[in-house]
Amino acid sequence: MGVTIYALRRLIASLILLIIASFLVFGGVRTIFDPTARLSKNKDVQARERERVRLGLDKPLIVQYKNWMSGVIKGDFGREDIGSEQVADKLKKGFSKTFELALWGALVAACFGITFGIVAAIRRNRPIDYAVTAFSYFGIAVPTFAFAYVLMNMFALWLPNYFGSSEPWLFTTATTQGSFARGYDGLWSLASISDYIRHMLMPIMVLSVQLIASWSRYQRASMVEALQSDYIRTAHAKGMSKYRVYTRHALRNSQVPMVTVMALDIGLLFQGLIITEFVFSIPGLGKVFTDALSVGDATTIAGWTLVTATFVILANLIADLLLPVVDPRIRTT
């Protein structure tokens, strides 16, 4: 009962947030970009005016927003300002390219981040803890794109050269055709899988390094706190086995703050996608953004930003809904 009301309230709050955010995004993008700016060169004032009317720019912002939004709900994000493609198609295409990378990145980041954090917390002040801490300092401080180029040099040039290999160990481009590229026969043949890994490994590493660093830090901190709490001491004192203490109590309780932290960092994942796809020239969502921004394509940017905002809000909503599952305290009251 209580949980249903809680869930409903979160849902409504998320919707309101989404509406406000979308309005701000649209308004912001509309004030920043003038799609008719390129027409100002040919001094034809009337042509520019016609274009403005065609795009509906002469109407008040709120009306423009309404028109845009009513299209967006039907899946129509409008046509790009420069060129003739539908924004929705561009986003869809970009998304299909990005999806795999994003999923792998999030998965790898979550697995490694949480594992590193737990191991470091259990072996606190031992060498492995110091290693994790050092890594997290590295991951937080390194500019991701620079890290990407170091990796590329290392795995595509230096190491293969040093070991006299004729081919790069890892490829500096991701698989652009989706999974299992390059016409190997047999989807699950060893060759095709290894090819897949060689393409995807570096982008995944680049995408996840920052998240692993920050998540392992949070996980370590919350796990340490859980391990130091009274009930863990009691559990130890009662003679419960170490393994059971860790899994039953400490892990579960340390997961409560982690859910929120990870959901909040979904925005970081998109930021990482922009950088990773820029560096590895992957024509995915991130690239759609950078390309649109460099030509000043307002409609595409508005659509893009709305889509990412929706993902972030959705992730946070899911985290909020997951909280009662992880944290029994919310469930009971």
């Binding site: 909040l264 970081l268 998109f270 930021q271 990412t308 972030v312």
Partner: peptide, 8 residues
């Protein structure tokens, strides 16, 4: 502010 990535 958290809804849209800082970089964007």
């Amino acid at each position: 502010f958290l809804v849209v990535p800082q970089l964007v």
